Simulated scan of single mutants.
Amino acid sequence: MTLVGTAATVVLLRDGTAGLEVLLLERPRHTGTFAGAWVFPGGRVDPQDYEAAGYAPPAGAAGPPDPSRDLAAARVAGARETAEETGLLLPPDSLTDLSCWIPPLQAPKRLKTWFFLAAHPGGEVRLNPGELIDFAWLTPAAALARHREGKMLLVAPTFVTLTLLQQDADVASALAHAATGPVETFSSRLLEGYEPDAVIAWHGDPEYPDAALAGRPGEGARHRLTMRGSDWRYERS
């Protein structure tokens, strides 16, 4: 299944008493995308987001590839969706590029999603009641623990992002780390033959389908997420 559009996700950060905290939002349990999951603010990039970024909207379902155009529109969409879902106002240029996620071919809805980091701009979270039912500011470690305990449902990009954010002690270090590093693309591939586990692999894993094109991974290399129930394990060497 081909990609059907572009989306944006904003990882909002603040410094808490226990360290770096992120804002997670709970989706309704029975309807909508990621039903029942705790996610970062975000949503699909609309045609007006391209116009606000100074570009013509893409032609057709996805339009010709233009990463710079899509990234600029995604920043606008990320700020817009954050305001709509939480009431928090962010200038699009305050978003720091973090990563890009492409779902597995088996996914029912394939949107190329840009992830951004942003510092909490201040103010109270006011949820959009039609889209969200709860929110929480948590350290990445606390959110991951809740997932393991079955108290919080996460999706793979959220889980991996939280895992990687554990290396940052505060907002300043997280933003600096993202600003100095490349915007990494996670083009997900669902591996077969691991049932009852579900295993998603990315570049650098020896079983990644395009590994031969990217060069032979080192011995013992891993870049995958292994999922069994709420027991998930992200490996990256």
Rank of each mutant, 00 (worst) to 15 (best):
T180G: 13
A221E: 10
G60W: 05
R189A: 15
T17Y: 00
R233K: 14
G87F: 08
E51R: 15
A118P: 07
A119K: 15
A178F: 06
E124P: 04
G181I: 00
E184M: 02
T180V: 07
E207C: 02
T17N: 00
A201G: 03
S68V: 12
L105K: 09
P47T: 02
L111G: 06
A179S: 12
V4L: 11
W114H: 15
L138K: 08
G123I: 07
A56K: 13
E84P: 01
P64T: 09
P182Y: 08
A145I: 02
L3E: 12
A169L: 06
A8D: 05
P140L: 06
R110L: 12
P28D: 01
D168R: 10
L3Q: 08
A56W: 04
F186T: 03
A174G: 10
A172I: 00
W38E: 04
T163N: 08
E124K: 14
V39F: 00
A35V: 03
L89H: 12
L132R: 15
S173N: 04
A214M: 11
D49F: 08
Y55P: 03
Y55H: 14
G63R: 11
H30N: 03
L95G: 09
P104Q: 08
R126W: 07
L88G: 10
D70P: 04
A107E: 15
E235R: 13
F115N: 05
V45H: 02
L88Q: 09
T2C: 02
P47R: 01
S188K: 00
A77Q: 13
A214G: 13
